[in-house]
Structures are given as structure tokens and as C-alpha cells.
Design a protein around this nucleic acid. Structure first.
Lengths: 349, 349
DNA sequence: CAGAGCGTGTAAAACGTTCTCCACGTCGAG
DNA sequence: CTCGACGTGGAGAACGTTTTACACGCTCTG
């Protein structure tokens, strides 16, 4: 009524507008948009001209009612983990020149909230889902995957309904143990994430990492010295784990962790206890995130090729979405040790 | 035809199913879902029971055709900046117990790709948009805001179509300069992001920061010593800026940067030149991200209350979406200096 | 006791696409 | 010349919601 500028002034250009402008049917326009079969070159050009003229952009919600929405959903527990940023970059680069848009749902660590986020993505008609180390019960993921193409990153549990991309975390652990042993360490501890509760994932990254660590220690005849401290992958979690380990009767001379950020928590604990790194304690992270390379940090770590994992996941997902493949598959990446300045031979006792 | 497990087995439960199950019309169910006016208590209970029975979840795409989609879109240039993670957490916490879902579009730094991402969000019928320091031309943002409620975080340029949330970056710069001067520094340089090109944002965070820095230097009679080095906010960008500054004829005794990660790049440059921190060079970051607090880092920084900024943005946006407010508004947060171990009195010459 | 007004529920028309048919014209084979 | 096949375009029915407009029955007022 009054002169106040309202919210929605100019209406959207719809497919009907384009059809009218080009003097053809909406069906024809739709075909051109999706470059479907059954349209002549002349028609394509005419319609394309109309589209450009009017600046038409398809209405995704309307598309979602019938066909695809050209949107890929990514579930993430934790935006802070720089490793996930690498994965995200990989996904984005792979999809950059396609029609797909990537939308990220950041859910936090709570399994219930993660489940809610996954449902949100499904309800919004994502064409496909990439779940990064989901904490939701496996049954829910299987359920989702039954109706929407899904790629799971991280968990080693394979399935015939979803695809997966994993790092050979067992090899990664072996790499670290071998290296530390070669430096002369024997008393090597692992800081890993807490085990999965009742959510039915048997082979989480942390479980496989622990397994690889234990095997490697065994291989070197050091099983009696092996010990795993469970904690959250955060600065604080690492700090607590570090405190526990380093104030024990016989503290380790080297600590490896399942995440770079946790390693820096251990670093803080060591510092507070007056230990110098690497003189008094060797420290190894995991994931080789940007964090590890920082000048004041210089953390020895294990590189997981997050970017490659992300692009592999995106490629696999699109294959499924466009039903060019109907069999589940699993991609495994090989980790690589990156030595920096937080590791050295143990001080003689 | 064959026994191979197909993609979509069980159909979704729709509003029609619920209506039939409850013996009412779909309109009634719709009203209950949106708790709209005109439904009796008895009706509400009956319908709610049917919803629970069937596990009904509304189809967001279908909703988007007519009404709202209960989705908030967030545009982010860079997942790696930990400061943005704080903002995201604030948004999420604010919206946790509402019906809204937050979806993030990670666009990277390229303005064209950012514009594409914004369009994607609009096409997907987001109810509202939160743009974190967008690099797209201001005109485009105004255009978007004309049809979709929008909150801009970072840029100080106000508008009567979008709301904004900013940090008083000029005060922040003043805080740092005052502190460094009080320690005895005079030769203080600033590392800031490159100026905006032709995109018409006049008062970007970096512009306001530079302004505040220059004023503060002037206030202390140090304007002749002021110098601003422009670079990307990344480890590498900081490194290059640091190299330039520290190899100059008369290198500064203190460097402040517009982002923590850039400060760590300067740190690396200093290290490479054999300078010790804070003895030979005092270093101050900005944003007080988790990075700054890390044990090996201990960077003096300026805290911006990202979490609070995020929740403020979310609150403002929801007010707009639910049209409880029709006037643009701007929220400004006050920064706070956090002193750690990268700053000290300059070494006498 | 008529009629206005209110509270509650429903029918049905959007919303902007996709996609299945079907019609039409042309061309080649017989 | 006829018939079938093929290539191209269009009509119209979905898809699952929201929302408008209205019908119905009740209560209250005068």
C-alpha cells in the first residue's frame, strides 16, 4: 500500500517465458536445457538465444519435483579440520565445470544432529551425497544410500549400496612406527579417537589406524610397549591424552596421533611439563594439513592426499547419479610420510 | 526386469498419505505442519499422530514451489579460515532449535565463481542468505537482496536492502598500534589484503583496518613510518609480504596483519632471515583463531567474537525471513586484544 | 427467531519443471 | 505409389506442497 520498497519486486523468468519468447513449447525448452535427445540444431539455437535474451535460470525446486536438482550434498562433522577442507577442494575442483553445485551441511559431532542433517539433505532432493566419516549408525547410512547415491569417505566398512573412498590408515600407521623405530624409538604411543559406540561401524579410520599401529609394533617385537590413548581429535583432547601419557610411570619417547591438531595438543602438554620437542619427545601427526607445515609448527605428519580423495569421491558419485555404473566400488589411497622437525632420535637414557 | 537391486525402492511418505491416514484433507495437514492459524486442538493431535505414525517429512522441493523451504544459505570464500568456522558455529547454534537448516556454499576466491554460487543458492529457493565478505560486485549483492533476505558479514558498506554484521576493524587496528607503541615500537608495518578492484565495495574489512591503522599511527605522530603491504591472506601471501618488508632498507620492528594465517607466513619469512620472534620482530595477527592459541604458535592477536557475529547474523536474518522487521540494520562488534608470546619491547639499536 | 459473525475444515488452483505419449512430416524401400 | 521407420516437436499429466476462497455449523445479538 505505502511506498516502502517491498521484498519481491521482479518475478523470475520461467521456462514458459522462454518458450513464448522463442515461439516453441516448454517441452522443447526443457529438452534443450537438459540437452536431451530429440531436438534439431535449429531448435537448439533458437531456444538458446531466447534463454540468453531473457537470462533464464531454471528453478531448482521445480526441477526437484520431477527430475534432478543438480546438487550434491556433503556432510561434514567439523569445519575446523583442515583435512576436510582439502577433501572439499577436491570435490569442488572435480565438479567445477559441470552443472552440479556442491552444498555443505555442517552438522557437528552429535550423531543425532548428523542424522538430522542427512535427512535435510535428502529432503532437499540432493542428487547424491558425500558423507565424510559419518557418526550416524551404519543402518541409517545404508537406508539413505538405498534411495540416494552415496559415497562414504573414511570408514573402511564396504557395502554394496554405497561407494567408498578411504586412506590405507593401517599402512600409514606402519609408516610412522617403522620410521620412529628406525630412529631408535621403542616406546611409541598412539593417540587415537574414541571407539565407535553402538553405531555399528566396525572399521572407522581410527580403528584401522590402531590396528595398523598394533601390527607394526608387533612386527618390531614391541607389542608389550604398545599403548593407545583414546581422546577427541582436538587441541584439548590431545592435551589431555598427552598429559596422561607423559605423566605415566614410563612415559613414551615418541607419540603419534591420528590428527595433526591432536598432535599439537600433545605438544602443549609436553611444553607444560618442561619437555622439549624433539629432544625429549618425538611427535607425529596425521593428515599433513596446512597446520603441520606452518613455520612455528613444522610437524612430522602423514599425507593422505585429501584433494585426490575428494575428487575421486565426486567422480564416483557423478557416475552413480548419471547411472553410468550400478556396482558399488571402493577406492583406497596410499599415504606418505612427511618428515619435519618434531621427530629425532631419542635421547639416550 | 532382472533381480538386480534398483535405485529407488520405497516411495516417500507424502502429505496425501498422512491426510488419508488421519482421515482429513491435505490442507489440514499442511496447516498443522506450519502451525498456521485455523486448526483445533483435536485436529492438531489427530494429524500429529498420523505424522508420527508414518514418519512423514515434508518434501523441501515441493515446499519451495509455493512457500518457504526452511533453508538458510551461507556463502563462504574459504573453508580454511578458522575465523569463518567460528561464524558458522554461531549461525548453527542460533538455528539449532528452529526448523531451519543451514547449507553452505563454498565458492573459493574467484568473484565469478562466488556469483555463480550465490545464484545457485537463490535458484534453490533459500529463504535467506548470509554472505561472508563476498567478493562479488556490490551491485549483484544488492540485486540478490532485493528478492531474498540477505545479511552481509564483514563489509562495512551499509545498505537499506541488506542487513550487516561487522567488526569495528578500525578500533581493532588502533588497539594493536597503541599496544605496540606502549611497548616502545615506532616502526610498525601492516600486512593487509589487496584492495577491492572494480567491485564497488568501498569499506571492506581490510580497507577499514588500513584506515584505522593509519589514523592510529598519525595519532602517535608516526605517520611517516606507516607502511601497508598488500597480499593474500594465506601462509604464502604472508611469507611474501614478510620478505618484502623485512628485507627493506629499514625493516619494521613490529608487523601486524589482518589475519592470523598471514601472520604465520610473516613468521616463516622472519625465520628464514634468521630473525627471532619476539626478540627481533614483534608479530600480531587478527581474528584470534584457534591457530593463534596453539602451543607452538602463541600468536598475539585481536579477538573478533566470530561466534557472536554468526549468531547475530542468523537472528537478524530470521527476523527478516519471517518479516518481523522491514528496516535494514547493522550490528557492530567490538574487538579485543589478546596478548600472547609473539610481542615484546623492541631490541635497542 | 432471523441474521451476522466466527471458528473450523475442505476443494481446488496454483507453483515451474520433467517426461511420456502422440502426431506430423519426410524419406527410403519395396 | 504405398507403407513403415525415423526424426522432430508439442500436449498434458504428473510431482508434493501452500494458499485462497468458500461452505458449514455454531453462537451470539437484537
Amino acid at each position: 500500500m505505502d511506498g516502502a520498497s517491498a521484498a519481491k519486486p521482479n518475478k523470475r523468468v520461467t521456462i514458459t517465458d522462454v518458450a513464448r519468447h522463442a515461439g516453441v513449447s516448454t517441452a522443447a525448452v526443457s529438452k534443450v536445457m537438459r540437452n536431451a535427445y530429440g531436438v534439431s540444431e535449429a531448435m537448439r539455437e533458437k531456444v538458446q538465444a531466447a534463454i540468453d535474451d531473457l537470462g533464464y535460470r531454471p528453478h531448482a525446486a521445480a526441477r526437484g519435483m520431477r527430475g534432478r536438482t543438480y546438487t550434491i550434498g556433503v556432510l561434514l562433522d567439523n569445519v575446523r579440520n583442515a583435512f576436510f577442507a582439502d577433501i572439499l577442494d577436491g570435490i569442488r575442483d572435480e565438479l567445477r565445470h559441470t552443472d552440479y553445485t556442491v552444498l555443505i551441511g555442517a552438522a557437528g559431532f552429535d550423531p543425532e544432529e548428523q542424522a538430522r542433517t542427512i535427512r535435510s539433505l535428502v529432503d532437499r532432493q540432493m542428487d547424491g551425497l558425500i558423507l565424510i566419516a559419518p557418526g550416524t549408525p551404519r543402518a541409517e547410512v545404508l537406508d539413505t544410500a538405498a534411495s540416494t547415491p552415496t559415497v562414504v569417505i573414511g570408514h573402511h566398512d564396504a557395502s554394496d549400496t554405497y561407494d567408498s573412498v578411504v586412506d590405507a590408515d593401517d599402512l600409514g600407521a606402519g609408516l610412522v612406527v617403522d620410521y620412529l623405530v628406525s630412529l631408535g624409538h621403542r616406546d611409541i604411543a598412539l593417540v587415537s579417537a574414541p571407539g565407535t559406540r553402538a553405531n555399528k561401524w566396525k572399521r572407522t579410520p581410527e580403528a584401522v589406524l590402531s590396528e595398523g599401529y598394533l601390527h607394526a609394533m608387533q612386527r618390531h617385537g614391541l607389542d608389550r610397549l604398545a599403548r593407545v590413548q583414546h581422546t577427541a581429535y582436538s587441541d584439548d583432547g590431545g592435551f589431555k591424552a598427552g598429559m596422561t601419557l607423559l605423566t605415566a610411570d614410563r612415559p613414551p619417547t615418541a607419540v603419534m596421533t591420528g590428527a595433526d591438531v591432536a598432535a599439537l595438543g600433545v605438544y602443549r602438554a609436553a611444553h607444560e611439563l618442561g619437555l622439549r620437542i624433539p629432544r625429549d619427545l618425538s611427535l607425529v601427526g596425521y593428515n599433513n594439513t596446512a597446520l603441520a607445515a606452518l613455520a612455528p609448527v613444522q610437524l612430522t605428519s602423514v599425507d593422505q592426499a585429501g584433494h585426490t580423495m575428494g575428487s575421486a569421491a565426486a567422480r564416483m558419485l557423478v557416475e552413480r547419479v548419471e547411472s553410468r555404473r550400478d556396482r558399488a566400488m571402493q577406492t583406497t589411497m596410499t599415504p606418505r610420510l612427511v618428515v619435519r622437525s618434531t621427530t629425532s632420535a631419542p635421547q639416550g637414557r
